[in-house]
Design a protein around this nucleic acid. Sequence first.
DNA 1: ATTACCCTCCCCATTTTCGGGGAATTATAA
DNA 2: TTATAATTCCCCGAAAATGGGGAGGGTAAT
Lengths: 237, 237
Amino acid sequence: MQTKIVAFIERLQQVTTFDGIQRLIEQLRDLYQVEHLIYHSVNSAGEPYAALTYSLDWVDHYLEQDYGRIDPVVLGCYQRFHPVDWKRLDWSSKRVRNFLLEASDAGIGNQGFSIPIRGPNGQFALFTVNHRCSDEEWLRFTDAHVRDLLLIAHYVNQKALEVERGTDRLPDQSLSPRELDALTMLGMGKSRGHAAEILSISEHTLRVYIESARFKLGAANTTHAVALAMARGKIIV
Amino acid sequence: MQTKIVAFIERLQQVTTFDGIQRLIEQLRDLYQVEHLIYHSVNSAGEPYAALTYSLDWVDHYLEQDYGRIDPVVLGCYQRFHPVDWKRLDWSSKRVRNFLLEASDAGIGNQGFSIPIRGPNGQFALFTVNHRCSDEEWLRFTDAHVRDLLLIAHYVNQKALEVERGTDRLPDQSLSPRELDALTMLGMGKSRGHAAEILSISEHTLRVYIESARFKLGAANTTHAVALAMARGKIIV
DNA sequence: ATTACCCTCCCCATTTTCGGGGAATTATAA
DNA sequence: TTATAATTCCCCGAAAATGGGGAGGGTAAT
């Protein structure tokens, strides 16, 4: 069994394009004989990327409906450190059950196992195995392959980051100490006036920091700037 | 070497109080013969807790100065999934270098290794080993003990959560779907008017959601509500 | 079936923030 | 050293948010 993963990692090293990752994901699905395999990520600029074996119809529908915001797999893994079996997630809300029905119709299996991954600057990725089978079968599968999957998830993410770095993007905008102070205060719920008082600067000055931070982050308004700074790990509230 | 950790885990099971955890941390420091051992966490309500071997003076100073917001160890690990050696963190800013000098004066060693941990509802914890030695010595130490430390970090966090659950806290406030929608839109930078339009409701209605979400989250204003919802993993922007 | 919560709509007055300007001194870095 | 960035201060009008109030219909659970 170990030869599988060794061969895979060797082949992964050759890959230099997103297409290559996609093909590898498909080969991996066949190798492990599961219904679906999904790698998807959101980089620091918020751009999504995915290599997966779901039907394109489902992917389009998912994106159109912005299901990433209610999908318990995404929500549940976003802040988690450890891989999680889909059974352990929260499927209780009505909206989610509806989503589940649609997913099932689109050919998504009832069993799933997802591995969250985090990269630099808030980059977030998920590596998911999906299958349709009984709980017992699934338990046997996961027990047998968790280690492999962890390694694969890690390597695939590394490769995706590497390939993406080729597509040169805007450099990571760094915020000045005062800008971080300002955003932190606002994120903590202080009003501009109070925040300025705490930082011992005029309210006007505070506003300059917020403005420049907003500009650097490409944020539409103050709330957005705070949200982006948080999402990118620049501040903690 | 393995007997060390087995004995530790057994003793850990007996612990039922915060004081017990503190004593165990001290014993662990002696066991591994390092300068300092630190476990600290922030729960879903934002309350900090720590069991550590730093001097109380330094802890007081750290809290008073709110160094948690600039400490590269905290910042760097907050969004990371994997343990990290302090050398790999970003110590470049002036403010940080100053912090480092103060820390060194307070008896904190030059070498460190921190393990981030995440629990339910945005709970975040750090397990850190600190020592004063050369890079080579430190490499030998970490190489020899990473596995142990990972396990210990995990068990200590579990125990801390368990002990904390005893001190019954306010139940986790759940937000309604529409409240989540509203906060998500604002977190994405939409204005109230635009957000209402996207959600196909009146701007007045949107405001009701924001107000109730703010109330539930105990937030002072909209920006705060979005920040809290993000920190608690309720929304993704 | 009653309670409770969710969703939707509306008014008003007050406070706060936004987005455009401009300008000075001090650090930091190339 | 010279440029670039950071830090600090200021004005103003338009726009948005806040904090009260009230009201009706729906759904879900007890």
